[in-house]
Amino acid sequence: MKILVVEDEPELREIIHDALLKEDAVVEMAGDFDSALDKMLIYRYDCILLDINLPGGSGLELLEELKRQGETDGVLIISARDALDDRLTGLNLGADDYLTKPFHISELIARTKSIVRRKQFNGKATISIGNLVLHPEDREVIASGNPLPLNRKEYEILSYFVANKGRLVDKTALAEHVWGDHIDEADNFEFIYSQMKNLRKKLKDANAGIEIRAVYGIGYKLTEE
């Protein structure tokens, strides 16, 4: 997994770099428009994390140039501008996804992995973990050969944890991933608690070979047994 991080804020660049290294990715970084353009035109990446406001130009222009060259690198726009126009423009220009700052690291990892998987295997890849096989395209889960029936939200939670295997997932990050940004009182963790209770029970009953452990009162972590 080869990733280019285009972000002008050094601290945030470092954070993303560290987080991706933990996922065994090869990470390159660019802090301004020109160096990003150089790298994007010379090398190929599985995914480019692209900030919009850059010294020397706009990330959207970089995206345009990349698509003009006919390159198919995955692009995840990360921007402080949540403006709808930017989001639409970005997606219309061929970006694969759009993430608004501030984001949770676990959210960034999940989205990056999802883009890389779509690019690498045309979305047909399956993910094996424990005794489970996930089919992201069909949103299906097979447990030791038998389908494991999960509702929409349960599937989303599971795939989120699978992407963040071994990483502590903050309850808030989970709530926002599953319910979206714009819900008031997302810190009312009953929502997550009841959903997690059901999911954990299903995983246990299906002998999934993985466990989603509560970490203190803070969040959850998925581990293989």
Binding site: A19, A80, K101, P102, I105, D170, G217
Partner: peptide
């Protein structure tokens, strides 16, 4: 509001990475 987003992102993400990297006691984590 937009300018706040980046420092907020840095603060939040640094803390989360910190919690992930180090072995902390429950009290420290809380």
């Amino acid at each position: 509001s937009h300018e706040w987003q980046t420092p907020l992102a840095i603060a939040l993400n640094k803390l989360q990475l910190f919690a992930d990297k180090h072995t902390l006691t429950e009290e420290q984590m809380e």
